Simulated assay, not measured.
Amino acid sequence: MSKRNKLFIFILTLGVFGILNTEMGVIGILPQIAEQFNVSVSQAGLLVSLFALAVAISGPILPLVFSRFNRRGVMLLVLGVFVISNIFSIFATNFTFAIIARVIPAFLHPVYISIALTAAASSVSDKEIPKAVSKVIMGVSAGIVLGVPITTFIASIASIDAAMTFFAIVNAVAFIGVLLFVPSMPVRERLSYGSQLRVLKKAITWHSIVAVIFVNAATAGVYSYFAEYLATITHISGKGLSLMLVIFGAASLFGNVLGGKLLSKNAIKSVMIYPFVFGVVYIFLFFMGQFTVPMFIIVVIWGVLYAIASNISQYWITSAAPEAPEFANGLFLTSGNLGVTIGTTVGGLFISGMGVRYIVVGGLLFLILSLAFILLRIYMYTPKKQISH
């Protein structure tokens, strides 16, 4: 891979990191946001769930709409909107304004991610496509798992406004990178809308979508209130909380690599076993979450499994619709974020009705539902030989 291509892919990945950091970075500071705007933590969770809902709505639509325009121009548009919205978030004077400032750019989130994946793949030889795409996906993982501890740390030593400023700076740097170093990328070939939409006629596509929704609801429904759980149940806050989030993030980056290897070795079996393994971790979290040392071990394993969910989700949907990879990636983003919306909302209901500890029960219920649809797809569409090998 040439130095020019490496720089190009790095800029794409940086933009992905900035966008995902904007989406997920607030998770670690939900308690502070709730206090600043005088709302409950579950209400503050709307900043996560509504953002994800906007992504879920636009995921299968806007990438298709923008597919006819120059990719460089579209990337600049998306990153520019994110910069402006982050600046507005800094000066938000009430909770409603804060929500609006987050939801508007959220609709453009899947547009950039889809373009980044496509542009990375088209910039290298066929042999190097997996490597290039994996780097962009690493930006997704890094935005999710590193954005949270970085934002939490900034908020703990400075302020919430400083954390929001960090969001704006990262997206601004990505914008400048695209402006200066990314060439014009007119679209030369594209699949018709109809040929891509036809994958929605296949039952396997819908079984996969529902499974991915529940997988992401199971992970996000608990992780979205990670900071509140550590503060309330484990009695860890401040710099200790930041440290736990950093550990979670480091474990997740390892999980991203591990997930790819597991799927390469035996994808079907890896997907099938995943809900069982995560379920065991959640059971330990429920009964041992109040103890610091066991919680440290749980957080490490939890971080690894959390990242693997992204690999599994992307594989499960794209493998169901290989004839329309770009649209399938849009469905992956939609399904994942719809899962985040549902999981975060249900998690908030468990907090309001039963207490923070019981968000784990919600996570377990979603894992059971995900397993049901995973097994349904395997039973209906997967030859037995493919499962065993």
Rank of each mutant, 00 (worst) to 15 (best):
T341A: 15
S335M: 13
S352G: 12
G343I: 11
T344C: 07
P325A: 02
T341Y: 15
G347P: 05
A321D: 02
L338K: 14
A321F: 00
N337S: 03
G339R: 03
P322F: 02
M354R: 13
F332H: 09
S319E: 07
G339H: 10
L333R: 03
E326W: 10
T344A: 12
L333K: 09
A320G: 01
I351T: 04
G348E: 06
P322A: 03
P325L: 07
A324N: 04
A328K: 12
F327H: 05
A320W: 00
L338P: 12
A321P: 00
T334W: 06
E323R: 01
L333T: 13
G330T: 10
T345F: 13
V340L: 13
T341M: 15
F327M: 03
A324M: 13
P322N: 00
F332T: 03
V340G: 11
P325E: 10
S335I: 05
W316M: 11
S352W: 05
N337I: 09
G355H: 01
M354I: 05
G343E: 03
T334C: 11
I317M: 07
I351H: 08
G347N: 07
G343Q: 08
V340N: 14
A321I: 03
S352R: 13
L333H: 11
G348C: 11
T341I: 07
T344K: 04
S352K: 14
G330A: 11
T345Q: 06
F350R: 02
G355I: 06
E326K: 10
A324W: 04
A320H: 00
G347I: 01
T318F: 00
N329D: 06
V346K: 07
P325D: 01
I342F: 08
T318Y: 00
N329A: 01
T341L: 13
T318H: 08
A324S: 15
